[in-house]
Amino acid sequence: MHAQYTVTALTEKENSSFLRLIAAMGRHRIEIESYACSTSPSGATYKHVLTVRARPEGMRRAVKQIGGYVGVLGICYRSLEENVNSEKAG
């Protein structure tokens, strides 16, 4: 069963960070529904926000793998339910 997740990743501002992120998602058969990227105020970091559909195991593995990449400063993900609960809690 594919669930919806929101993935947030902070990376160094390098073009290859896009490539690695997207390639890893594809490799783990994660379907990307939306993608947005912004530059941090300091201009040194990219913030990537993706909405994806994935199996829980695939999501866990992909995030663990991406977290180990050189140039990835941090990555986390939340399920749709967690996002909704977070919104409800205000």
Partner: peptide, 13 residues
């Protein structure tokens, strides 16, 4: 080659 090698390298530049 940066795009081609990105998923296969530990780092590229």
């Amino acid at each position: 080659v940066i795009s081609v090698s990105a998923p296969l390298t530990k780092w590229n530049h």
